[in-house]
Structure formats: C-alpha cells, structure tokens
Design a protein around this nucleic acid. Structure first.
Lengths: 196, 196
DNA sequence: GTCGATAAACTCACTCATCGGTATACGAAG
DNA sequence: CTTCGTATACCGATGAGTGAGTTTATCGAC
C-alpha cells in the first residue's frame, strides 16, 4: 500500500475538479469532495493542508489537462492556414458550449469568484494558465503564417473570453460566429506574407 | 413610521449591493448585510422573502443605476463619431479598471458564480441587463453613423466582456487598447456613409 | 381631543445544517 | 517498533431562515 498515496491524491483531485468545475469553489464543501472521492474528510486533510491547497492542486491538474487537450484538438489542423484555424477554433467553442451543463471556462469563473482576493494563490495559477494559452495561440498562428502572431493571439484571447461570457449570460451561441468573423477580419488587416 | 419601509428597503438593497459587488453573492452572509444596513436579520427578512429575492432586488437596482451612469458618461460625447466613441469607451474601461479593488462587471461575475443554475432568477435579470447595454450601444453607434450598428454592438460587447476578463485575470490593462483597436478596425470594414 | 384597535415595522433568541479544520486512535506495511 | 494512511468523532463558527413578542404610527369611535 506504499504507493497508494499518489493514487488517492489523484482521486481527490479528480473529485474536487469535477465538483469545483460544476458548481464553483465556494459552494462545494470539503465533505462532499471527500465523499465523492470515497474517503473521509480526515484522510483528505492528510493529503492536503487546506481547501486552498487542494484548489491549487486542482488548478495545476487542470492546467496540464487543458493544454494537452488543445494540443490534441489542434493536431488535425496542422495544415490549416491561420484563417481556417481561427474558424475551427470558434466552431469548437460553439460546439463545446452546446454541452449540457456547460458553464464556461473553469479558470475564468474561478478568477471571478475570487475577484476580490488578488493575492490568492489560485489567481497566480490562473494568470499563468491564460498566458500559456495565449503563447500557444501565438505560436500556432505564427506557424500558420499570421503576420503579427502575438497581436493576433491577444485579439483572439479577448474574443474567446468575451464569447464565453456572452454565451453564458444570454445563451446566444451565435456570438461564436461573430467572434470568428471579427478575428478573421482583424487578421486580414495584417495579411501574412504570400508563401511560395 | 408608516412609510419608512421603502427607505429601509433601499438601505438594505444599498448595503447588499456594496457587499455583493465587493465579495460576491455566496461569500456574503445575510447577517453582514443586516449589520451594514443597521437593522437585525429578522427585519431584513420582513422586507425580503429570501436571500435570492434580495439579490433580485439588488440586480434591478444595479440595472437602473448602470444605465443611468452610462447615459451620463456618454452625454459629453454627443458630437463624437463612432470611432472616437469606441476609443472613449475602452479608455473609460481602462480607467475604471485602475480603481482600487476593481473586480470587473458585477453582473458578469454573478452569472459566473451562478453558472450552474441557469434557472436562477438572477440569470434572467443579468441577461436582460446585457441585452439592454447592447441595445444602447447599437443605438449610440447608429446615431453616430456606424453602418451596421447591431453587428458593431455585438462586436463591442464581445470585446468589452473579454477585456474585463483578461484585465482581471492577468492584470494587464493594455488589453483595453488592443480591444479598442480591434473594434475600430472591425467598424472601419463597414464604413459609415460619408456625411455631407 | 383622546382612547383603544389595528397593522406596519422591528427586535431577541432561537432552529438546524453545514462550514473548514482537528484530536486521537487504530490497522497495516516495512 | 515506527511510519503511513485512514477512520470515528468532534470543534467553534457561521450559513439561511423562523417563532413569538414588542414598539410605533395611523385611524375610527366617542
């Protein structure tokens, strides 16, 4: 049973991830996480010092998971040009938002929940996460011939975040198409070098 | 004391507004609101059936207040063209975000907090609120000669929401300038009719 | 004009559930 | 025998919400 700790830890993180993502940080109690993980609360506190520490672990887990997922998602798009890549991106967002019980991006919701606590460790992790996504976007766009990949990535981040907020608030998924259009046009104003 | 109810009610709404806006809905207890309003908890429940009902009243209050504020803000811009109007809009956002303890848009944060409760009354109020803002934007842009004011308003809503999220997450206020640029360019693609 | 009746406006003290976190003890593996 | 991991049972604080009683303003009756 010596290596079971890591497995138990992961089970706790997984349970907390599911619950935090579904209902938010504040509204989910430690007891429910422990029950979902199939252990007692005391055991949970053996593995994690506090609820905040657990949250940090969950976010790190989510960070890795999300980056792996978008890399996997982008794999079939290796040959796409920047414009098609953008269209595919927002089409994927529209599809994602159709999922039942979709609640938008977990990191963003968490930051909003902790908006008055700028010093909270979770805020730093979320900031790093978003920066990593933006970096990945810039690299992806640059590799597909976008003229100013960093500026384009910033624009797309704005539109992605805005899109998720608007869809969540009003339930109108056509904002995804609007965002794609805006992103494409914005890109077209910095046209890529013609490739031979 | 026969007509004091309305005044007390408003004091409760004001206290709840301050606290909800500063710390969110879930993390503020009824006791604190009552204390801040200078009454007992039991008196609060005399005026409001539940915490949710109080939240609804707070949101209606905020809705009216926000619309009045943006109208007041826009008054000096009556003569501005659509492009300048957009620049002023995002400049105001950048300035607003510099306020100490700035936590972004209250309605958006609330919807994120209640993301898993699509049937919550507060969600409907928030949706109406955002729709009203978008309508106001479309009217303002149309009056300033924008070619497709509805599409432009949708674009700007996306960028406003995205901007607030990005600034809150990363603390980087230069996203406001990026958003203004994107909005302006997007507008320039649908150029207004030249005015005589 | 004053005296109850009435209803509005409010308070004190309480309910029960849940919150995050812990003291202590027990079983198993090395 | 010690260390790791778990369980039972508990802590004080706080959550939303309430039952029952008290003050206060207004109004009809005389």
């Amino acid at each position: 049973m010596r290596g079971a700790a890591a497995e138990t830890r992961q089970r706790i993180v997984g349970a907390a991830y599911d619950l935090f993502y579904a209902e938010g940080f504040g509204r989910v109690g430690i007891d429910r996480i422990a029950a979902q993980a199939g252990i007692t609360k005391r055991s949970l506190y053996y593995h994690f010092d506090s609820k905040d520490a657990l949250l940090a672990a969950v976010l790190e887990f989510h960070h890795g998971l999300a980056l792996a997922r978008i890399a996997e998602w982008a794999a079939p798009l290796a040959a796409a040009d920047a414009g098609d890549f953008i269209d595919a991106l927002f089409a994927a967002l529209a599809l994602w938002s159709r999922e039942q019980h979709w609640t938008g991006a977990g990191m963003t919701r968490l930051v909003m929940e902790l908006a008055d606590l700028p010093g909270h460790p979770a805020r730093a992790i979320a900031a790093r996460h978003k920066a990593a996504i933006e970096d990945w976007l810039a690299a992806s766009l640059g590799a597909r011939g976008a003229a100013e990949p960093r500026a384009a990535a910033r624009t797309i981040m704005l539109l992605l975040e805005g899109c998720q907020a608007m869809i969540l608030i009003g339930g109108d998924r056509t904002y995804a198409a609007t965002a794609a259009l805006v992103a494409r046009r914005s890109l077209a104003l910095n046209p890529p070098e013609p490739r031979p």
